[in-house]
């Protein structure tokens, strides 16, 4: 296993952890909130809304724009 594989495995592990949290959140009585509910809480204020939307815009700029 080389450095490339380790790096990619790290991303995969983080992605699987996130998917696991989301699945866990769907169980009745779970203490883990779904990501959507957490975002709803963060976006209850103007700074939260603008912050989250700015993050989304940054993703678009980062992957597509110069």
């Amino acid at each position: 296993m080389n450095a490339h594989d380790v790096t990619v495995l790290g991303y995969a592990a983080i992605g699987i952890s996130g998917a696991g949290l989301q699945l866990t959140s769907l169980r009745p009585g779970s203490r883990i909130p779904p990501l959507g509910r957490l975002l709803g809480w963060v976006m209850r204020t103007r700074s939260g809304r603008v912050g989250v939307i700015t993050g989304w815009v940054w993703v678009g700029l980062h992957y597509f724009a110069r």
């Binding site: 949290l21 959140s25 203490r31 883990i32 990501l35 809480w41 976006m43 103007r46």
Partner: peptide, 23 residues
């Protein structure tokens, strides 16, 4: 601009802090 203008929902219940920390 749309995010700046709202709507702003003031009384969203705080999720369980431990769950928020996990995320």
């Amino acid at each position: 601009v749309i995010a700046w203008r709202g709507p702003l929902i003031r009384d969203v219940d705080l999720p369980d802090p431990r769950g928020a920390v996990a995320w």
